[in-house]
Design a protein around this nucleic acid. Structure first.
Lengths: 217, 217
DNA sequence: GTCTCTAATGGACGATCGTCCATTTAATGT
DNA sequence: ACATTAAATGGACGATCGTCCATTAGAGAC
């Protein structure tokens, strides 16, 4: 964001310990997400966010201009963080086999780092209000272009070894994302019963059927 | 509900045209669901529900004892209606082939009767607040026992013709429901792009991979 | 008609909502 | 040390929230 690196800033110190607007901005966003995960969007009010962050009530209007903008910023932050973590977990080098790369995405999406009580609650809360909140809808899509491209490229490599029809790659990509979506819902519905391993193996099995001879255990 | 059929009631007349508590109950539930679909759960207030139903503000407390109970009743009603319509659309006789029965469920779930703007918005709105609203969580599951059993039975018949491992049936059932879940999300995210036909064919393709020789076009 | 009982009304109520701003506090420049 | 500027505070404000209840209206029973 902040494009100018203030030349007056000495050493590597982060400003001067107090009065850090940027840190407070982030603190508010974090408090918002935590509150949503704890008590739900419906009960997430300005007062509640402030009391959790330890900041005063005026800060939201000061830094975001209103509650709606804070919510949108929180949704954007959450989405960005999610895909950044996905990149970190699933980005094997391009020397890895396409099957391994696909499975890396699946296992990353089902890992505790991405799929946990906090993130599922936040994710579904945002999705639930997205229809009536255009600003949030922009960040509640599961079809991140980069992730889609990663999957598509991998499936393409697998498919062109044999002679499959062109829609196969599209279907494999959409189907994989849809299956993962379903797994998140299963996790939200009953976290006790849910098994990350079984979920990953289920998806592998579906892909194995789609690409005979591939995705075997 | 009303266990006694008041003997004094003449003919088939519905009470006496005015003063119909049961109708008002249903009217309130319908107004609640419509409001949620229109402006979202967050903005769905007692006042808004009443103004839409044309009834007075006291009715909610009178018939449901509070807003929370009304919301829960609305979620239950919606869920019941959904599965009733699913039954109506997908219940081929048991003389139909298991493949046809599975595809009937899939096509029903993707039909305009079940998958439309109103129902997707309501469904995801309820799911979004389910985590912080135990009463609603009970009706936001996608794993309706009867529907699961229908699919499981059909996949069982398909599987036991060949000699597959026992987990195949469970995986096929869970996977089909997960894929449908993902399709609903796709529909919510972008209704313009969504295609019912392509979605159904995608799921069929995945099942075709799982059961070689079956689910062919 | 009168009595009885319940459905239904609509406003009162305190609590809380989100917004906004006068004021205070802290850091920087001179 | 003082002036300047930005960050941060916390309470005032009107609007709206959900609940509750005194009251009115309507439909049998007698």
């Amino acid at each position: 964001m902040e494009s100018l690196n203030r030349v007056t800033e000495p050493k590597g110190r982060k400003r001067s310990s107090k009065r850090d607007p940027e840190a407070n901005r982030r603190l508010l966003i974090k408090a918002t997400l935590d509150t949503i995960a704890d008590i739900g969007v419906t009960d997430t009010s300005v007062s509640r966010i402030c009391e959790r962050s330890g900041l005063s009530r005026g800060m939201i209007h000061l830094h975001f201009g209103g509650k709606d903008n804070l919510l949108t910023a929180a949704a954007q932050h959450f989405s960005t963080e999610y895909y950044a973590e996905m990149d970190r977990l699933a980005d094997l080098g391009s020397d890895a086999s396409p099957e391994d790369r696909v499975m890396a995405v699946i296992e990353a999406d089902l890992s505790e780092a991405l799929l946990n009580p906090r993130s599922t609650k936040i994710w579904h809360a945002f999705r639930g209000i997205a229809s009536s909140h255009p600003g949030i809808a922009r960040y509640s899509s599961t079809q991140d272009p980069k992730l889609v491209e990663t999957l598509r490229r991998a499936f393409m490599e697998i498919a062109q070894q044999n002679g499959h029809d062109p829609n196969l790659v599209n279907d494999a990509t959409s189907g994989t994302l849809a299956l993962l979506e379903g797994m998140w819902v299963n996790y939200l519905t009953d976290m006790q019963i849910f098994s990350r391993r079984r979920s990953a193996e289920l998806i592998r099995r579906f892909l194995g059927g789609l690409f005979p001879g591939k995705f075997m255990l």
